[in-house]
Computed example of a mutant assay.
Amino acid sequence: MSAVRSTVNRVLLALVGLVLLLAGAAVLGAGSGLLDRPWTGPHDVLLATGDRTRYTDTSWWWPAVLTALALIVSAALWWLLAQPRERRLRRFAVDADDGGGAVLRGRALEEVIAADAAELPGVDHVAAVLGGTPTAPTARLLLALSPHAVPGTILDELDGAVLRRARTSAGLPVLPAEARLRAVSHRATRVT
């Protein structure tokens, strides 16, 4: 979903940028005399009094302007609220087998997942972040792999052992995870 949201954000930003660019070009065109009414000096206005007050006596003008502005503000607020909240999950409920429950800190599960994944052969460093909602947590992992690591094996072990243990220990039926792998770049050292 975040890829779709990212694409929509880019398209909307491009459209807003294009509208602003065209509006700026129109103002520059009117100011430089390229359009039908040349701008004659610093005390001149781009729109004459007749152009500015042409529709003010009609009954539809102000309701149309206010409706358009309300739609623009509503769309901007909707867009702002639709953005993802990239927050860490502070705590979430764990269902105990005895019918009770407990609250688990999100950082505690992050540290356990990172420590468990760091034990995999070929993994140099792991960063884990727990996100989502308290009822449906998700995990994001960044694994730094050593040069001899086999990514397919690491992903199988990550899903088969590390995330399964995390799901079991936290009492979660599922724990969706996104793992990003990157190679560790080591500096060359001179041997003398």
Rank of each mutant, 00 (worst) to 15 (best):
S2W: 04
A3R: 15
S6Y: 01
N9P: 00
R10T: 06
R10K: 09
L18D: 00
L20I: 08
L21H: 00
A25K: 09
A25S: 13
G29P: 06
G31P: 06
G33C: 13
R37T: 15
T40W: 01
P42A: 13
L46Y: 08
A48G: 15
R52Q: 15
T53G: 15
R54H: 15
D57K: 11
T58F: 10
T67Y: 00
A75H: 03
A76W: 00
L77R: 13
W78Y: 07
L81M: 12
A82L: 10
Q83H: 12
R85S: 12
R85G: 08
F92W: 02
F92S: 04
D98Y: 04
D98I: 08
G99E: 03
G101N: 09
G106L: 08
R107F: 01
A108P: 03
E110S: 10
E111G: 09
A115L: 09
D116N: 14
A118Q: 13
G122F: 07
V126G: 07
A127S: 11
A128E: 04
T133W: 03
A136M: 07
P137G: 11
A139N: 01
L141F: 03
L142W: 10
L143K: 03
A149S: 14
L155C: 02
D156F: 00
D159Q: 13
V162D: 01
A166Q: 11
A166F: 07
A170Q: 05
V174Y: 05
P176V: 07
H186C: 04
A188G: 08
T189Y: 06
T189C: 08
T192K: 06
